[in-house]
């Protein structure tokens, strides 16, 4: 029995998505990704009211570390616990063509027909930091549609990892042997953001050495309760109530994956008990408001009246009546 194609207006899409229509949810993700006024309207329709069991798990890691395979293994465990799982697999768009090749689903197709699993590939669309600016909106959407676990898989080293840590409740950095020594690890900012460190591909040579290197790096790095030095002010710092555990997994065989889920639950409970989870969620909202605020400010640069005024001020600077700093101050005061 054919179902007619979907409408496009956000209000009826939200109603359908909340009622379990996956097509509607998928299209709303597109609306959020598109940004602008439709995304703003959508955000008003879907306030962030996550279920009590809501958890956002960030899975950053180098390409080839096995993030997608690990995500697939995690889906299996969370599904067995009766959770509905949304996987958001973020990959960078090409800076040259704007296109993207999104292949993370390849490893997750075993769950491709499970009605309680929603998998969506998201391109970063040129956003610096490698994450999609729409991610917080998409998380609010899947929370509103009855998913209780969101797995956010993202490429990452340095900046991008810091950003995922800002939007996730808990961050498990995925590593694999053969991606460099402990010095590389500390360079990439991995230790600062990890609540859990995962040595995947534990069946490969070098896994134990990597695990030891990570433990040693943790010994010499910030101890439990220390703050990690994140970019930006103190509100963005991550506080870890306990030392991040280092776990070995083999996503291919599923070995170590239940242990990883236990560790994530344990760490999440510790984050919640210490008040850090609530603080992180608040910081994520602050970051989101900041991002939208920045977009609004940027939009003012395109305003024709402002452009004309800018042009006049430039003439003043050229004539020696004004300096660029005073001109900019006049612009921002307007």
């Amino acid at each position: 029995m054919p179902i007619p194609p979907l409408p496009f207006d956000p209000a009826s899409l939200v109603e359908a998505a909340r009622a379990g229509d996956e097509r509607a949810l998928a299209r709303l993700v597109s609306v959020a990704e598109g940004g602008g006024e439709p995304a703003a309207r959508l955000a008003r329709l879907v306030p962030f009211q996550p279920p009590a069991s809501w958890q956002v798990i960030g899975l950053p890691g180098s390409p080839g570390a096995g993030k997608s395979s690990l995500a697939a293994a995690l889906i299996g465990v969370y599904r067995a616990e009766g959770r509905r799982v949304a996987v958001l697999a973020v990959d960078p768009s090409s800076p040259y063509s704007g296109g993207a090749l999104l292949g993370d689903r390849v490893r997750m197709q075993a769950h491709g027909l499970d009605d309680s699993v929603f998998i969506r590939s998201i391109a970063s669309r040129g956003h610096l930091g490698g994450l999609s600016p729409a991610l917080p909106d998409v998380l609010a959407l899947v929370a509103a549609c009855g998913y209780s676990t969101a797995l956010v898989e993202t490429l990452g080293a340095g900046q991008a990892e810091v950003e995922i840590a800002r939007h996730a409740d808990i961050t498990a950095v995925v590593l694999a042997p053969g991606f460099g020594d402990a010095v590389q690890l500390s360079k990439a900012g991995i230790l600062e953001i990890a609540d859990v460190l995962v040595v995947n591909k534990a069946d490969l040579e070098g896994a134990e050495a990597l695990r030891r290197a990570l433990e040693q790096a943790l010994d010499t790095a910030a101890g439990a309760g220390d703050t990690a030095a994140g970019a930006g002010g103190p509100s963005r710092r991550l506080v870890r109530p306990t030392r991040p555990p280092v776990l070995r997994t083999c996503a291919r065989t599923g070995e170590g994956v239940p242990g990883l889920v236990d560790a994530l639950e344990h760490q999440l409970a510790a984050l919640a008990a210490s008040g850090e989870l609530a603080r992180r969620r608040r910081a994520a909202v602050v970051a989101r408001i900041e991002a939208v605020w920045r977009e609004l400010v940027s939009a003012r640069f395109e305003d024709p009246t402002a452009r004309a005024r800018l042009d006049d001020l430039a003439a003043g600077v050229l004539a020696g009546d004004l300096d660029p700093y005073s001109a900019a101050r006049q612009m921002s005061g307007s």
């Binding site: 996956e22 197709q109 491709g112 590939s121």
Partner: peptide, 22 residues
């Protein structure tokens, strides 16, 4: 934006992918 599914997909898997990926 190209979503690649990998090998050996059933029509059911392909259509579910098309729906989820809009």
């Amino acid at each position: 934006e190209v979503i690649y599914t990998g090998l050996h997909q059933t029509p059911e898997q392909i259509v579910r992918t098309a729906v989820q990926e809009d």
